[in-house]
Design a protein around this nucleic acid. Structure first.
Length: 574
RNA sequence: CGGGGCGUGGCGCAGUCUGGUAGCGCGCUUGCCUUGGGCGCAAGAGGUCCCCGGUUCAAAUCCGGGCGCCCCGACCA
């Protein structure tokens, strides 16, 4: 069934709370039409009966609609050109637009909000700007944390936990750090009913408190490198928030390392950037551009900041992970020193790196489509959903045990699987439901399959008939694994293709301005802050990063025309 | 922090202008019926109308104050 065209759409904007609605996305009935619903139920049956048997459909149709209007009073039902009252009545009764997401191409922002809520990834919390991560969203986050944690451990890092509360004086010890963070600090002034002597801040990041600890723990070059990571949440008092992308509190990991030399610290910084890149590409199927940040975009307190930048489905950029070389800034502020082999006292070189729940936003915005979420198999909480189909006890007795058996086999082989045995819900509903929630592969198993020894596989990355195929129950595990691999690959290919199509390499400022409206511009930049600033003012695009991979040529700055030796990615950003 | 919108069963809204019985849809519960792309029928449960104060015989509605949320513009993962 096609979603109905409800004629009153223009000008009928959702109200604020409508944005939260799970159920009425896109429903734009005028109140008069809505009120028709109550009166129309009985009549609609009548209409069906009449329409089914008469040759004078158009006349009868008109007659009945007039009667209906008359009965109901002030009712602006309908478009007289509607195909028939039959469908008209059904529409009013059960508008499918109610169940449908806003189209991604029409309202990207609203589409995003709806997906987060309807796929049950997260919900709004009672405090402005905070989010509740729901089990399904948290399961996704857990898979992200595991994929990263594995990589951290493999490169010699260990996990620990540092406190939530930090003495305010700590934040003030590193001057650019204070400048960067003080506007967004949450400060605790009272405890135990008394005003505190020294206010505490809720960590916006943990460089300072970890610096304090490292100063105690590090004495000798033998204590280095120190490689610690922590999984936690931090608070930054943001003014404009959006679930996952920007919330007051967010979850992340922050790695903090100390090294004997600048070279080592730089190598660590770059290694972690590589790890983020590898994770994004291989596990999340998100192509990213690893690069160096300009001075203006650098972390408060870092000598050098690197990031991976990804293109979202609307052409905007999202910083998906960052890695900082902190030089000796924090080492000096917190006296993190060691005795080297010659017995000389040296300041350490430190790094920090983080990836947050914002990454979930990237997954949504890179892969999602009009049907909802699309999750890459390697991160999906459920890689496969099994929908059994039957219409009576007899069929149920055949189908259900078979579905359970096949599910059991697949689950035992390590495939993350959900068997949807909810009763009283039609298979069609389940199809749509799990598509909205992004499950990569659906297995449909009905009486016909049971008889033929087959299963229907439906790929989420190709909605509808196109993505369906029939596989034998024998050797299903292999077929499923192959399908998941293919989906993983096709998601990456598609995202990469999209990014390439929407990235323009240009030295012409007019062309540049056009490019950053819809995607990325790769352009020569002279490296001066004023040019960067002007570009931002004039186009709203910022310097996302200077890609690590550079051509060896040189060129002219896209803004000022002065000689430039590096090309940067410019884009509007989240 | 500036501009706009909103606050009424779980969710979305009507009712507020013009004061007098709190209503609709969805969802939920129970039963029947259905189930290969968002089923249907019937019967139920569920509300301090954001808070405080005022006016009035009477306030969801009028007046004053407060709180909260969402959306659009300057900083950040």
């Amino acid at each position: 069934m096609q979603p109905p065209e409800v004629s009153a759409a223009p000008g009928f904007r959702r109200t604020a709370h409508g944005l939260r609605s799970l159920k009425d996305a896109g429903l734009r009935l005028p109140s008069s039409a809505a009120s028709m619903k109550s009166g129309e139920t009985a009549s609609s049956e009548l209409l069906h009966a009449q329409l089914g048997t008469t040759a004078f459909v158009p006349r009868i149709d008109f007659f009945w609609s007039v009667l209906l209007i008359w009965l109901i009073g002030d009712c602006t039902i309908s478009d007289p050109n509607a195909p028939s009252q039959k469908s008209g009545a059904r529409r009013a009764k059960k508008p499918m637009s109610e169940l449908k997401l806003p189209a991604r191409s029409e309202d990207f922002s609203e589409w995003y909000n709806q997906i987060v809520l309807r796929a049950e990834l997260a919900d709004y919390a009672p405090v402005r700007g905070c989010m509740i991560v729901r089990p399904y969203g948290w399961a996704l986050w857990e898979n992200i944390t595991q994929a990263l944690d594995r990589r951290f451990k493999a490169t010699g890092h260990v996990n620990a936990a540092f406190p939530l509360l930090i003495p305010r004086s700590f934040i003030e010890k590193e001057k650019s750090h204070v400048a960067g963070f003080s506007p967004e600090l949450a400060v605790v002034t009272h405890g135990g009913g008394e005003e505190l002597e020294e206010p505490l801040v809720i960590r916006p990041t943990s460089e300072t408190i970890i610096g304090h600890a490292y100063a105690k723990w590090i004495q000798s070059y033998r204590d280095l490198p120190l490689l610690i990571n922590q999984w936690n949440s931090v608070v930054r008092w943001e003014l404009r928030t959006k679930l996952f992308l920007r919330t007051l509190e967010f979850f992340w990991q922050e790695g903090h390392t100390a090294h004997a030399t600048l070279a080592e610290a730089e190598a660590e910084t770059r290694q972690m950037l590589d790890i983020y890149t590898d994770f994004a590409v291989r596990d999340a199927a998100i192509p990213v551009i690893p690069g160096r940040k300009s001075a203006a975009e650098r972390f408060a307190g870092a000598d050098e900041t690197y990031s991976i930048e990804a293109m979202m489905g609307d052409g905007k950029a999202l910083q998906a992970g960052t890695s900082h070389n902190l030089g000796q800034n924090f080492a000096k502020a917190f006296e993190i020193r060691y005795l080297d082999q010659t017995g000389a006292l040296q300041y350490c070189w430190t790094t920090s790196w983080g990836l947050s729940t914002r990454f979930i936003g990237a997954v949504i915005m890179v892969h999602g489509d009009d049907q909802g979420l699309v999750l890459p198999p390697r991160l999906a909480p459920f890689q496969v959903v099994v929908v059994p189909i039957f219409k009576n006890d007899e069929e149920k007795a055949v189908v259900l045990p078979l579905a359970q058996k096949l599910s059991g086999t697949l689950a035992d082989s390590g495939i993350r699987l959900k068997m949807d045995s909810r009763e009283g819900i039609s298979p069609g509903f389940k199809f749509n439901d799990w598509e909205m929630r992004g499950v990569p592969l659906r297995l449909e198993l009905g009486p016909r399959d049971a008889a033929k020894g087959s299963v229907v596989l439906a790929r989420r990355d190709r909605p509808g008939r196109e993505g369906k195929s029939i596989a034998p129950q024998q050797g299903l595990e292999t077929a499923v694994r192959n399908a998941l691999e293919e989906i993983q690959k096709s998601l990456l290919d598609r995202a990469l293709d999209f990014r390439n199509k929407n990235t323009v390499t240009t030295s012409d400022y007019e062309e540049f301005k056009k490019a950053v409206q819809t995607g990325f511009a790769l352009s020569w930049w002279c490296g001066s802050a004023p040019c960067e600033e002007k570009i931002k003012e004039e186009t709203k695009a910022t310097m996302r990063c200077i890609p690590l991979e550079q051509q060896r040529r040189s060129g002219k700055c896209v803004y000022c025309g002065q000689p430039a030796i590096e090309q940067g990615i410019f884009a509007r950003a989240y």
